[in-house]
Design a protein around this nucleic acid. Sequence first.
DNA 1: CACGCGACCGGGAAATTTTCCCGCTTGCGT
DNA 2: ACGCAAGCGGGAAAATTTCCCGGTCGCGTG
Lengths: 220, 220
Amino acid sequence: MIKTAFDESRRIRVVMVDDHAVVRAGYRTLLGNANGIEVVAEADSGEAGFRAFVEHEPDIVIMDISLPGISGFEAIRRIVARNSAAKILAFSMHEDTAFVEQALQAGARGYVGKSSAPIILVEAVQQIAAGNIYLEPEIAQRLAFQKTRGPTSPFANLSTREFEIFCLLAEGFSASDIGSRLSLSAKTVANYSTQIKNKLEVNSVADIARMAIRHGIVEP
Amino acid sequence: MIKTAFDESRRIRVVMVDDHAVVRAGYRTLLGNANGIEVVAEADSGEAGFRAFVEHEPDIVIMDISLPGISGFEAIRRIVARNSAAKILAFSMHEDTAFVEQALQAGARGYVGKSSAPIILVEAVQQIAAGNIYLEPEIAQRLAFQKTRGPTSPFANLSTREFEIFCLLAEGFSASDIGSRLSLSAKTVANYSTQIKNKLEVNSVADIARMAIRHGIVEP
DNA sequence: CACGCGACCGGGAAATTTTCCCGCTTGCGT
DNA sequence: ACGCAAGCGGGAAAATTTCCCGGTCGCGTG
């Protein structure tokens, strides 16, 4: 048998956060079959993910972005706030570059779309565990293109927090809903809402929703 | 030359309402080339359309639904309110059955999509002028299907007014915007808004927008 | 015809949200 | 150290939303 680069003592310890149990199970086996990767904990929410991170101190966290309760962005931010060396791979069905930007800005070290080939996830985990950044070539290319010649995403001026609240608004949540979700005052959320509408140059939540749908950020 | 069914004294007199001058021009020539049809007036808004109807008392009004100011629905309703014998052909780029239903409910005698073959418009005008109802076969079929086996459109319980305000809300207009457009009190619009959300079982304008987009009623 | 019913319109009053403006803290680059 | 932007939220006024009410109008039915 060929000697691998990862022996038993150097297995990559992974915490996986996703709200769908089937998805977790699927990827757990996928990663388990790969060499030198071990899923040491699963979590179905951002909060639980954060707790799992604290408890297990894994080498890497695989974080779904679309989560009930606090979003993946928020979870990433909390984890990074606790340990800025944390290695987090963002993992989402959204392929929009705005999402990628925001995830990286929040502190993720990589981004993989759910529609990617499964092997990509393994590759990404290994790269990030090794201390590198990992982006799917296709996504990296689009991102790079947008940075140079392409029209800048309208969400570029939005801070991470603003973008997060933008998404929740687009999904139909009220300011107070979002406040409780994010443990913020409803007033703060309302302030963000105004700020977002100014930056995006729209006048209503309906416009926000339309914009989000146009960019594939929320589904219709 | 073959003797036609329409002699000079029985030409069908048409008022055409559409906000795009080029569209009007195109269809004016199209109709003008057809036998026995004469466009006696054009209008670029619902208000102007209503005035043109009063002034010219045409045999038929071709009414675009998507109009600045008052919507085509509202214009239809006003015209029918003035003369319940008015023959109106609704004409819109929206192919959704909800639109068709609403237009017919408002008093239109027919519905033609803008993507239809041009000859269809001529055919529809002649049919309606002759006192018949005209629906494109394809649309009529979908409508009939939905009435029987198909899942009832969620908009079926919405009154014409409610549906109209639903559309405007989805497009991002505020309650007071809509109030001035429709010559209603902003409070009335707000009341409708609440009523609509109840009927549609949603909680926010963003949900309204998403729903409208899902059904192709407004474009993303 | 009277009657009921639902669509349509809007007022009043209370609750909530939104807006605008302010100040505070924190992290980051210079 | 310094400025600066992001993040957070209070206060007060303005606007909107909600809930409840009453009214008119047209339409189908007994």
